[in-house]
Every structure is written in C-alpha cells, then in structure tokens.
Design a protein around this nucleic acid. Structure first.
Lengths: 125, 125
DNA sequence: CGGTATCCTGAAGGATACTG
DNA sequence: CAGTATCCTTCAGGATACCG
C-alpha cells in the first residue's frame, strides 16, 4: 500500500543525499564553470587553458579537469610525443552543460549594471 | 592611437578581476543555487527555507540570503510581529537568475544516468 | 609540457549558545 | 522565529618541488 506521496521528482538537487547535487556542484564549481565556458570556444591544451582561465593554479586546473572528465563532460586526448601534448575538449554532454552555464554567465555579464545598482541601494543606508 | 584590439567583451567572467566573476560565484555558490531554485516555487520564511534546502546551516542560509539580497536577486520582507516573521522572495532580476540555474539543475537531474555511465567507464579501468 | 606529491594557510562552513 | 556571535573543524586551494 502507498503510505507516502511523491511530490518532488525522484532526482532532486535540493535533496541532501541526491547524487545530482554533487554533479551540479561540479559544473557550478568555481573553476568548473570557467573551464566549461573556455572550452566552448575551442579545444585547449593544458597550458593554454591555464592562461585562458586567468587565476587558476596548475593543481586546481588538473583537479577540475579530472572531475569533469570523470563525469563525462570533458574529453582528454594525450598525444605520445615529446614534449607531451594533451588536448581537452567538450563531449556532447559537456557541450550542453557548457551551453547552459555559458548562458548563465552571459546573462550575469549583461546584468552587471543592475547588480551594481542594487548594491548601491542596499549599501546606501 | 589604438594599440590593442579588444577581442573579448569588456565584461568577461573569465577575467580574473572582472566583478561579474564574483556575481557569478554568488549565484553558482553551493547554497546560492539551491536557495534560488527553492524560491522559484514560492516565497519562503527563513525556517521554511532552511527545511526546504536540506543540509544548510542557519549561518550559511543567513549569509547566502544577505549576499543574494545585496546583489538584488532576493527580496526580504520583515514583518514587525511577535514572533518575528520574515518572508523571502525573488525579485524580477532574481527570477531570471533562478530560471537559468533552475534550467541547469533540471538538466543535471535529467542527465544523471549519463554521468553515472561515464563514471563507470572512467573508473572501469 | 603536463602533470603529481607534499606541505601549509586562509577561508568556508558546522555546532552551539545567546538575543530581540 | 529569525537571526547574531563565538568557537572550532574541515577543506579548498596556493606554493613549491619533483617526475615521465
């Protein structure tokens, strides 16, 4: 017999233990967002990407890329040459994720004046 | 005279010192995302919201709400009654932000099986 | 070049107690 | 109820050194 009624979907980022919350945190993480946005433009090599995403450390870039690769958002292709060369690009899944976060980022850029105005009003008194 | 050519927009989240990067971090922050998503449904009181966003502490909820309010995403309305009652809701600006992050979250929920499969392949060997 | 390993610090964030 | 204040712990993340 049915004792409880499902109101929210079974997969709910708002649920403390739902794995989707972790995935969301990966794509919205500080560096994850910026990496996805950069890779929207084109594939990048590690060092290129490090320069493109200003401020990221080697460690955090490597870590972020591994997480995104494991989740299936980023494709990693290592070329066995000297010096080593590794190319990163978006998978189809990652391209969609990047599209969504890119849209968000673009909207934030557009809305910056509104935010600045809101802050002035808030701090004003 | 013009010595350099602007290739990227003047407001660029990818730029280390661009204020828009901070705003993006506010809306994509761990609890900011979940608060925006919850407030999409309806206005919430503080305690309601705390229960709705499972796992958030009082401190972090208060801090997150203050940040979102200052940026103009959340409207705070305190009723001078006893016991105190404070309602939180989205501003028009916040509604748009919430729509975008909500879209992202929804896509993540839908894509969870793909991510799980990708992880299995990655960890597989 | 593209990492990994180690160490270390500051900031994020949780628990608890207290207040208007 | 809706916070704020305080304390304390965890961990993201930076610096540095080293390796294939």
């Amino acid at each position: 017999m049915k004792v409880s009624t499902e109101i929210r979907p079974l997969v709910d980022v708002t649920d403390r233990n739902c794995p989707s919350r972790l995935v969301l945190e990966h794509v919205t993480s500080r560096w994850g967002v910026l990496v996805l946005i950069a890779l929207r433009e084109r594939g990048y090599r590690f060092s290129e990407l490090r320069r493109r995403v200003a401020g990221v450390s080697e460690k955090m870039l490597a870590q972020t890329l591994q997480t995104l690769e494991r989740d299936g958002f980023v494709h990693r292709e290592a070329h066995p040459v000297i010096p080593p060369r590794v190319d990163y690009s978006l998978t189809p899944l990652g391209a969609r994720a990047a599209e969504l976060v890119g849209g968000l980022a673009h909207w934030v850029e557009q809305s910056l004046p509104d935010v600045v105005a809101a802050r002035a009003a808030y701090d004003g008194r």
